[in-house]
Nucleic acid binder design. Structure first.
Lengths: 223, 223
DNA sequence: TAGATTGTTAATCGATTAACAATC
DNA sequence: TAGATTGTTAATCGATTAACAATC
């Protein structure tokens, strides 16, 4: 039931949670899962889960729910996690290195094939299984020959735009930006950011609300 | 002009971007910034920037815009980034260590005071300036005495729920969950996640769309 | 069968965007 | 002044949620 504009982004964002939970169910040997059950575990409403699942095209059975296996495969498929995508890390600092070592990417169909850095002392070394090359050696042919689709950008904020420009010039298809900087790329290049500040802002706003309500309650217990 | 439900979450999420850009402006010596200008730099629409700014309570001057300093302070204030919040890191693995070393948190009013881990060989060592303690030594009084509000959860997925339960029992106010696992906490505890899978899912979906449209165009150039 | 769950259509809700008067 | 920009009100858009018939 995919509409012309594609699956809504909020739905896309919930898919990984469904996927993780369904994989747990699968390991436990369950064959069916109902929207009610998924919703309960993920603190969502059943109606929302049903709506989300409808975008995968999978149909359920009244009273029992959805086939776990089918649903897993359908979600993997709509996310495009069934064909492996190769990525390079740009900037082998603490965060870049942590990402290079992260083993969970495999289940997202993401493979980190190399890291690039300007620091000479890192050249030729590895982070986990990932070799670090000189950034200057990153050429267009490398990207093409190795079918690198994604650059994971973990350079300092003040270098992010400049490095992104170079990546774009090299023909990269997508940039996953972890630098705390909003960068600009041509519209043909896919840009996604993971911004700690954004996430922390939401946390801060929630904490602030709680603290203020506590102060209020302490000032006046009659409420 | 804050409504009863508070500032919308999408607006909260854009505030850090405004803040970073305004700080650049400030460094450059600019005193005023218009919504038009901010929108241009951040790929937003001017109307949206004006609406967002209205939630800070700051008023601008037609034709010139908003006072950079005032706006910076107002955003910091609504985010609660003016009073420092102390946090501990739970799980000093690669990601936890990278976060412990991250210097950008200071500008969010976030201070990492310690890390806790179950691995004996890490006890007594430091990551950056952050000391690592045995997880078993994390007691309720430590949290209270050190005014620790936030626990940054960077443990493996299969331990996340269990560790979160312990943190809740110790009276933690907020959990910032980096583990690839959806955890449940009582509603009085603030929960915020930073989920790589979620972010990558959006990136994947966009990449998939681009690849499919390219295939389509290659199959039939007449369009 | 009875009743839980699905799938769809319509209503609601909240954020974005448009329109435009006010203003410096 | 002229015109760019603000601030507000109303319209639009898109996602969530409600309602309910279908069904196993």
């Amino acid at each position: 039931m995919e509409n012309k504009r594609g699956i809504p982004i909020p739905t896309i964002k919930r898919f990984p949670s469904y996927l993780r939970l369904l994989n747990v169910f699968k390991e436990e040997g369950r064959e069916m899962a109902s929207a009610t059950m998924l919703a309960e575990e993920l603190n969502l409403k059943p109606i929302q889960v049903r709506k989300d699942i409808s975008f995968t095209g999978i149909e359920g059975k009244p009273k029992v729910g959805f086939e776990v296996d089918k649903l897993i495969n359908a979600i993997i498929s709509v996310l495009g996690w069934d064909n492996a995508t190769d990525a390079i890390i740009i900037g082998a600092g603490h965060l870049g290195s942590a990402l290079a070592r992260y083993e969970g990417f495999g289940s997202y169909g993401l493979r980190i094939v190399a890291a690039f850095d300007t620091a000479e002392e890192k050249w030729g070394t590895n982070v986990g299984d990932v070799p670090i090359h000189p950034f200057d050696h990153l050429h267009r042919w490398y990207i093409e020959e190795n079918h690198v689709n994604i650059a994971v950008l973990t350079v300092p904020a003040d270098e992010a735009q400049h490095v992104a420009d170079q990546l774009v010039a090299l023909g990269i298809m997508a940039i996953w930006n972890f630098a705390p900087k909003d960068i600009k790329v041509p519209s043909r290049v896919v840009l996604q950011r993971t911004d700690l500040a954004t996430s922390f802002a939401v946390l801060s706003a929630k904490v602030k609300r709680v603290m203020e309500s506590r102060e209020f309650n302490e000032e006046d217990d009659s409420w």
